[in-house]
Design a protein around this nucleic acid. Sequence first.
DNA 1: CCCTTGACTATCT
DNA 2: GAGATAGCCAAGG
Length: 112
Amino acid sequence: MNAFQSKFDPLVHGIIANIPKGQVMSYGDIARKAGFPRHSRMVAKSMTRCSYELPWHRVIRSNFTLAFTPKTVIYNKQKQLLLAEGCSFTQGKVIPAVTPIAEDLDKLIWGP
DNA sequence: CCCTTGACTATCT
DNA sequence: GAGATAGCCAAGG
């Protein structure tokens, strides 16, 4: 565990863990909120490394598509998890069950 | 130290 | 709107 991860992981994990049910965030958004605007790739690595429970299925691409290749098992798994939360799918794109709440989430994490 | 590899993103054709 | 291009940055070989 290097210095970067020890700071980055908890932030990213905390943010993901606080994404409300039915809501989704992009890798870039999470990295930005963590204070590392260009570390979207690191967000992905942090999630892969994370062994404990985390709503990783709420993390998608900035264009609202899933990050995995369609038709793969893992892709379908994420899709199912999102559907179970009330989200819907249209032409491969995710439609959150809740309208974007960037500001609310911001307050939820960083306080008012 | 150089090169490749990503669960990325924005922009240009 | 799909594909290519260019930034991006840590990690591992």
